[in-house]
Amino acid sequence: MDDSKENKSQAIIEVIDFGPLKISGNFLLKDLKRGNEESPVEVKLCICGKSGNKPYCDESHKNK
């Protein structure tokens, strides 16, 4: 039986240097703080803590 199919990578999760977490592919995003659920093709999530539009990146990481 072909097991590789079941373990196939479904999404690319990329930690961008000094930037956000970029997720693309087959994924389901659930925001437990705000109660949203969505499955976009791509999303950039804030991982620096500074975004004014959490959980999304708003490029605030570029500000000192």
Binding site: E6, I13, E14, N26, P55
Partner: peptide, 27 residues
């Protein structure tokens, strides 16, 4: 075969992003 399960991406309240499933992590 079942269509592959989407990766679960959970934003925890005042906490981390929890990723679950089969995915490629690049950092």
């Amino acid at each position: 075969e079942t269509k592959e399960q989407p990766v679960s991406v959970k934003i925890m309240a005042d906490g981390p992003i929890v990723l679950k499933g089969n995915f490629t992590l690049s950092y």
